[in-house]
């Protein structure tokens, strides 16, 4: 029997009514929480456990709560993160797990490409950075050309205009896709407005040549 991730995540602050209110007021969730529904985060944890994920890369970490919570739960052999560090300019703290391999910069830069190449194989990559279509598409293109088993996206469902780019890309992607979707209890939802989508690899697939690397 697997671990009860709902219980284990109880102490982890996730997207709640206050976050929602701040987001509706400012258009940015200026709140130091995991920007995920707790119910969907629990589903992601179940997948991580089921798939035996031992290395993890998160692109777009906000304040670092998610990568920290996952590393606490799974004690990954290797944990990496990339972020432009926007929260610091918004007055929120950025904290990361001890031992993290951190790229502080733009995930679409040549420097990131070099960093990602040096990082080597990763079991799971979570893309949760810039949600505009071109940006998330670029993150996907980089991710799928790098050695990894699973690539996940946040915000694949709902009708938030800010996530339209992710939803469009998710619809376009082909392959073995898993949707982790559950209403956010803390918002009293009946339907999810976020959702996590996971594409199963392995990556790179045949034909994804190194020469195709953007950047």
């Amino acid at each position: 029997m697997g671990r009860d991730f709902r219980r284990l995540l109880q102490g982890v602050p996730c997207w709640n009514r206050r976050t929602q209110a701040i987001y509706e007021q400012h258009g940015v969730p200026l709140h130091d929480v995991v920007l995920q529904s707790r119910a969907e985060l629990a589903l992601l944890c179940e997948l991580i456990e089921r798939e035996g994920v031992r290395s993890y890369l998160e692109i777009g970490v906000w304040t670092g709560r998610l990568v920290t919570a996952l590393h606490e739960l799974f004690d990954f052999d290797r944990v990496a993160a990339a972020d432009i560090g926007v929260v610091e300019s918004l007055g929120l703290p950025l904290r990361l797990p001890f031992g993290v391999d951190f790229f502080h910069g733009d995930s679409h830069s040549a420097a990131f490409v070099a960093w990602r190449r040096a990082l080597g194989p990763v079991d799971l990559v979570l893309i949760d950075g810039d949600h505009r279509y071109d940006a998330v598409r670029a993150d996907w293109e980089l991710a799928r050309r790098s050695p990894c088993r699973l690539i996940a996206f946040h915000d694949i469902v709902g009708d938030d205009p800010g996530s339209a780019g992710v939803r469009r890309l998710w619809r376009e992607l082909e392959g073995d896709k898993i949707e982790l979707v559950a209403p956010n209890d803390e918002l009293g939802q009946r339907e999810s407005t976020m959702g996590i989508g996971v594409v199963r690899g392995p990556f790179p697939r045949p034909g994804d040549l190194e020469a195709d690397w953007p950047g």
């Binding site: 102490g11 920290t68 004690d75 703290p93 950025l94 904290r95 797990p97």
Partner: peptide, 25 residues
Amino acid sequence: KRVAGWSFQVKPGVDHFAFRSAGSH
């Protein structure tokens, strides 16, 4: 980590300090 099961965090760029956040514990 071994004795107490504690996981630590860092602030990027600060290499002399690791912490276990007070908020969750």
